[in-house]
Each structure stands twice: as C-alpha cells, then as structure tokens.
C-alpha cells in the first residue's frame, strides 16, 4: 500500500518546505472557495491540473488511476447542479429536471472548483511526508509541539485501528449478527463497531500519553528536533511560481 506512493522521480515540489507548501496551497484554495467567476474557476482548475499532472513526479498510469475519483466528483456535483440548479432562462425541462443557462454556469463553477480542490489536495499528499510536515509546522510555523506530537502519535495508530475494525467486522460475521431494519439498524450497526473501537483507542492513547510524560515529554518546554527542517532556495522559487501562475490564470480569465 505505502510502496504505491513512491514517485517515479522526485520533482522540485518535493524539495519545498512541507509546511510552507501547505500554507500556500491552503491560502490558494480559499481563493478558489470564495471565487464566484466561472472563467477564473476554470483557469484555476487548468493551472492546478498542470501542477498535478506535470510536477507531481508520478507515472501517468498512477495519475490516471487517481483521476477517477476526481472525474466522478466533477460529474456528480456538476450534474446535480445542472439538473436541479435554480435559474430563469430555461433551456430544457422534464418533470423535476430543469436545465437553464444559470444552472449550466453554476454547474461549471462547481465542477471546476471541485477539480481544483482535488488536484491541489492530491499534489500536496503525493509530494510530502506526513511526519516531516508536522516537524516543519513546529519549526517554521510555531505549532505547539503538544499538537504536532499528538497528531504524529495518533497517525501512527491508524493501522492498529483499521485492523481492529476488520477484526470486529469478522467477529460480527462469525456470530451471524443480524441488524434490524431502518434507523434502529443503523444505530445498532454504528454501536457495534464504534464502542469496542473507541474503548480500545482511548485506552491506548491514554497509555501513550502517560508513557510520554513518564519519559519527560513536557508541553510547551523549549526543545530540539530529531528532524530539523528549514527554508531553502526552492521555497522562494515555489512562492514565485505559484503566485505568478495564479496571477496569470486570473489575467487569462479576464482577457479571454
């Protein structure tokens, strides 16, 4: 599973400080979120598409597999908006379905936004190491170490959680548990999975916290880091390239 996420080549994006990369991407996606202009939304989607397909350093085969959910979300969000979106200038109507000029615009806006989010999200995940991301957040952006280490510890426990979920699923199957129908069955299902899972995870998390404190982990104390992270020249290049291309995407959308 994790071997799958090794790139074919390490592009320049891999050398950018992970925390800086996150902050820049996040800020850019807020622009995507609040933007209401259709041409700008489309030009942003194209820009982030280029970043994803050219600079993530993964083979075309893997990139096309990753594109499947993006296409699905583009179609499903776009289609809902196309058929049920509000609008006056009706082009086609059949029962509850109605396509109008406004709903086409809204569908394009929404579809492009979801593509932008997908491209940027995948580019970020594909080009960072989660642990180094948290170390960089502590060192470059002063995230308190208690949050960073809690996240790292909890993320390390994910395989244990998924394994327990699997065991629980098998155990219920072996005992041939039948759930009721409707909303009651939904609750029974939820309870039979969550209660053992949470009881175990809470005990485990509490033990880890006690162990860390026993080994003199102190919240808020000045500390050194096992993985030092810093800014380098690539960060300046990254900032310039991203801001430059967003500006040109904006200008293109205005003048085309």
């Amino acid at each position: 599973m994790f071997n799958w996420f090794t790139p074919k080549r390490e592009t320049w994006l891999f050398r950018v400080n992970p925390a800086l990369k996150f902050i820049v991407f996040f800020a850019f996606l807020i622009i995507t979120l609040v933007n209401q202009s259709v041409p700008f939304a489309i030009s942003q989607a194209v820009l982030y598409g280029i970043v994803f397909y050219v600079f993530s350093g993964y083979s075309l085969k893997k990139l096309s597999i990753l594109s499947i959910p993006l296409v699905i979300s583009f179609l499903s969000t776009g289609l809902t908006m196309l058929l049920f979106g509000k609008g006056e200038a009706v082009l086609w109507q059949w029962g509850l379905f109605k396509i109008s000029e406004e709903s086409i615009q809204h569908a394009l806006l929404l579809g492009s936004k979801s593509l932008s989010f997908g491209f940027v999200g995948f580019t970020f995940i594909l080009t960072i190491q989660p642990v180094l991301f948290f170390y960089a957040m502590m060192q470059q952006f002063r995230l308190p170490s208690k949050y960073a280490y809690s996240f790292i510890a909890a993320f390390r426990l994910i395989p244990a959680v998924t394994e327990e979920l699997q065991i629980r699923r098998n155990a219920l199957k072996v005992r041939n548990i039948q759930f009721s129908k409707g909303i009651k069955g939904l609750y029974e299902r939820l309870q039979s999975y969550t209660v053992p899972l949470f009881a175990q995870s809470i005990r485990r998390a509490q033990r880890i916290a006690v162990a860390m404190e026993a080994k003199q982990y102190q919240m808020g104390a000045a500390r050194t880091y096992y993985y030092p992270t810093r800014y380098n020249g690539m960060d300046r290049v990254f900032l310039l390239v991203m801001i430059g291309s967003l500006c040109s995407a904006f200008l293109l959308s205005v003048y085309l």
């Binding site: 949050y147 426990l157 998390a205 860390m212």
Partner: peptide
C-alpha cells in the same frame, strides 16, 4: 497532554 492526545485520537 493526555486529554489532547485522546481528543485527537478520537
């Protein structure tokens, strides 16, 4: 710290 780790774990 325990509360924090448990919260994030949840």
């Amino acid at each position: 710290f325990t509360d924090l780790l448990v919260t994030i774990m949840i």
